[in-house]
């Protein structure tokens, strides 16, 4: 036996949606014209709104400042030393486990980063990266940030493992960026 349905009652806070008329019969014959005309009116009225599409490969949408695209590694502008000290916090924070860091000691002859150690190997596997930006959040030295470039496809999976040199270099073409508040 089925029990009666007990309904929770929100009181005034519910509204019943409007039912539509029964299809077919005399009204249907009217609607086939009348409502179709209304639909066409709606559609043609959109013409004055102009074009919403853009011609993508030629034209690009400017990204917002917070957009998380391809990673970038940074250097200090004055000394040209790398900011990354090879602490592997980014690798620890990565939910996709796509960052590999091998640290080595700086020596007086070969000084690469500002700290005691530097990243001898720094690789990001872009085919695994989910662009969550936790690496950027985790980095205490602002050495890695999420850049704005998003066209990352390649022909080989191996080419998607970005090395330190690739991440330090400026990308070939700049993605247009919106100003703050734009």
């Amino acid at each position: 036996m089925r029990l009666a349905v007990e309904r929770w009652d929100p009181g005034e806070d519910q509204i019943e949606v409007q039912r539509a008329p029964e299809p077919g019969v005399a009204g249907g014959a009217y609607r086939a014209f009348g409502e179709t005309l209304r639909g066409l009116k709606t559609t043609f009225a959109r013409v004055i709104e102009g074009v919403h599409t853009i011609q993508y490969p030629e034209q690009k949408v400017a990204v917002y400042p917070r957009f998380r695209g391809r990673h970038k590694l940074h250097r200090f502008e004055d000394s040209d030393l790398e900011k990354c000290v090879g602490c592997s916090l980014c690798a620890a924070a990565c939910p996709a486990d796509c960052i590999r860091v091998v640290a080595a000691e700086n020596t007086p002859e070969l000084r690469i980063s500002a700290g005691e150690r530097y990243a001898a190997v720094y690789e990001i596997n872009m085919s695994r990266c989910i662009f969550c930006g936790y690496c950027e959040v985790a980095c205490p030295f602002d050495a890695i940030t999420m850049g704005h470039d998003y066209e990352l496809s390649d022909y080989n999976r191996g080419d998607l493992i970005f090395t330190k040199e690739m991440l330090l270099a400026e990308p070939l073409d700049q993605t247009p960026l919106r100003a703050q508040g734009e």
């Binding site: 539509a20 029964e22 077919g24 409502e35 179709t36 209304r38």
Partner: peptide, 16 residues
């Protein structure tokens, strides 16, 4: 809503 709500084809497909 203008496009769909009382459109005869949509009513035939959805109502009831």
């Amino acid at each position: 809503n203008d496009l769909l709500r009382r459109n005869e084809i949509l009513l035939q497909r959805l109502r009831g």
